[in-house]
Design a protein around this nucleic acid. Structure first.
Length: 570
RNA sequence: GCAACCGUAAUCUAGUUGGUUAGGAUUCGAGCCUUCCAAGCUCGUCGCCCGGGUUCGAAUCCCGGCGGUUGCACCA
């Protein structure tokens, strides 16, 4: 079960052994920012490779890369500008924070357009005080979780550093849709950095201001939330914490879907995919669970959301979120950009359908609107009866808003031959916090070996930064030459090896154990003579056991171990 | 952002009623030794978070900043 992780010791290893370093330490450091050292970056890349193997490899999704600086429009449409750029005031007496615009909303129709100065004046004018303690309210500050910048000279174009990579996929939806030859489902993945100007970053790598994400956006037919590979996994079990009971329960995926605990099969499939992904990386299954967001916890865009949570020394921590974003993003971008972002869903057979249609009453329109009547009629007839609100239609012609009552239109049933319909795809989004996964792997791999008196990282070979240490038993008598030769043969950018001939053999094993290297090859004197001539030893990190293998087979043996062959079967 | 506590080498730490050259351990490097799990010996490199102030003199006291931990708040 859970190994108690000594966070201080782990952070000490991370720094000494090149996993992570606090950024800008030379200049005093900046909270919430970390740099990856050689071992850390290697581990991180290996995590991304496993993720790619699953999504790009098995599922056949496509990968793109988009800009980190986005113009304001993007986040206006996504909702991030309004959701995160709040004006905040603090009570000068009890320090409680309040949304400044909420404080004055009784006095203004449109309080959220007021400037900080106007709000401060409003507090005085309307004698508004702290609702908690009656204290005086302090200055109004913009509280913006997004990093703001300007694009180009001057300040004409406002830009933001993206708080998530997802929008880069949504704004490219049309390109991707065409690339996919206008078919659903369409799966797109992207890795990259996101930025959130956290007020008080805490808990080391758990809350960073600049962080790495691996995001998947799967566009699906809203009426078809099934998944082709679902039957393969429906009997796998998983620990879920539904928002109805808030209690962890182990059940099969099928049970969760059939009982309506997880909203649909495709969401359930990717919840399960995430489980297997994390376990493959080395997350301890006993310290992993999936928690459904509470209704009021759900992001502004999410229809249902499950967090993969792991137990760390900080407590249960979210490392991946799997959300059903519904049609939120695409419909918002369609609305804000004025571009049709729908999918044309062809029926198997063209259908004869009776549809309610708006028909313009030209007789009434003509005399009233004269030259504009033609445009108005066309606009009206392209709308659907569901657009009629309180018996009125509102439409916009050349920027002019026109409200029409039913004296200008009628709704009638029309028979039409329809070959398909336009739908806004829904989005299933598994979004992975790469840095958090990275850190979780270290905590779950950490193991203090009492016997040896030092810490061992039991990283899975697939993600370990260095796969094999290569040593001469002693750096003399030609042992070192043989070891160097083996190192050269084994080492590649995929299979990282490490040559070490300094000090004692025990110290070299210890160094490798500490960074999670799964195997070490040692050239000893038996290589030169006796029955084991031409062989070297290979040592397993977790058991400290050794076996002899022919020197010329080192690469081959490492390859087979890396592809999953147990050490005991060598 | 508020409050409390804290900041000595890559790591852990001694030293803080102001007073010699800031002490130790580990790591790291060079060498000796060493025929498999941080052995031993010799030598070596590296430090008082930054800036200002008080003082003859500051790691030590004061102020500000930066960073860390914890609590409050925040966490899309």
């Amino acid at each position: 079960m859970a190994e108690k992780t000594d966070v201080n010791e782990l952070m000490s290893i991370c720094k000494r052994r090149g996993f992570i370093w606090p950024s800008f330490e030379l200049y005093g450091g900046v909270a919430g920012m970390y740099d990856y050292g050689p071992t850390g970056f290697s581990l991180r890349n290996n995590i991304v490779e496993v993720w790619r193997d699953i999504y790009k490899g098995r599922e056949g999704f496509v990968e793109i890369d988009s800009e980190t600086v986005n113009p304001r429009e993007v986040f206006k449409a996504s909702g991030h500008v309004d959701e995160f750029a709040d004006l905040i005031t603090y009570c000068t007496k009890c320090q409680a924070p309040f949304r400044a615009d909420h404080m004055v909303k009784d006095f203004y129709d449109n309080a959220d357009v007021l400037t900080p100065k106007q709000l401060e004046d409003a507090f005085v004018e309307h004698k508004i005080v702290c609702p908690e303690c009656g204290g005086k309210l302090g200055p109004v500050e913009e509280f913006n979780l997004m990093f703001k910048t300007t694009i180009g000279p001057g300040s004409a174009r406002i830009g933001y550093l993206r708080p998530e990579t997802a929008q880069g996929i949504f704004v490219n939806y049309l390109n991707l849709y065409r690339y996919n030859r206008e078919k659903l489902p369409l799966g797109v993945i992207q890795t990259g950095r996101g930025y959130r100007n956290e007020i008080a970053p805490r808990q080391g790598m758990i809350r960073m201001r600049e962080f790495n994400m691996m995001e998947v956006e799967l566009f699906v037919d809203p009426e078809d939330k099934d998944w082709v590979r679902y039957p393969e996994i429906e009997n796998e079990s998983i620990t879920l914490v539904p928002n109805t009971t808030c209690e962890p329960a182990v059940m099969t995926i099928k049970e969760a879907v059939d009982n309506g605990i997880i909203a649909n099969k495709v969401l359930a499939y990717f919840v399960n995919t995430t489980k297997n992904f994390l376990i493959r990386l080395g997350i301890d299954p006993a310290r992993l669970r999936f928690r459904q967001h509470l209704k009021d916890e759900m992001a502004h865009y999410a229809a249902d959301c499950w967090d993969a949570e792991v137990l760390l020394s900080y407590g249960w921590t979210e490392i991946t979120g799997i959300a059903d974003r519904g049609c939120w993003d695409l419909s918002r971008h369609a609305q804000f950009s004025g571009t049709d972002l729908t999918h044309f869903k062809k029926f198997d057979e063209p259908r004869e359908m009776e549809i309610d249609k708006i028909k313009a009453k030209h007789k009434a329109l003509g005399p009233k609107f004269k030259g504009k009547a033609k445009d108005i009629a066309a606009a009206m007839e392209s709308m659907s009866p569901s657009d009629i609100k309180d018996g009125k239609l509102t439409l916009s012609i050349d920027g002019e808003e026109i409200v029409l009552t039913d004296e200008f239109f009628e709704v009638s049933k029309v028979k039409e031959k329809v070959s398909g319909e336009r739908v806004i795809p829904h989005v299933i989004e598994p979004s992975h916090g790469l840095d958090r996964i990275f850190y979780s792997l270290l905590e779950h791999a950490y193991c203090y070996d009492e016997e040896k008196g030092y810490a061992v990282l039991r990283l899975k070979p697939e993600v370990a930064p260095i796969k094999v240490g290569v040593f001469p038993l002693m750096e003399k008598d030609g042992l070192d030459d043989v070891a160097k030769e083996i190192y050269q043969k084994v080492h590649s950018h995929r299979v990282e090896a490490y040559y070490d001939g300094a000090g004692t053999i025990g110290k070299r094993y210890a160094r490798m154990d500490e960074i999670g290297t799964p195997w070490c090859i040692t050239v000893d004197y038996e290589y030169f003579e006796g029955g084991d001539k031409g062989t070297v030893t290979i040592r397993d990190r977790d058991s400290s056991q050794q076996k002899r293998i022919p020197a010329e087979k080192c690469s081959e043996v490492i390859d087979s171990l890396l592809s999953g062959k147990p050490f005991s079967e060598l």
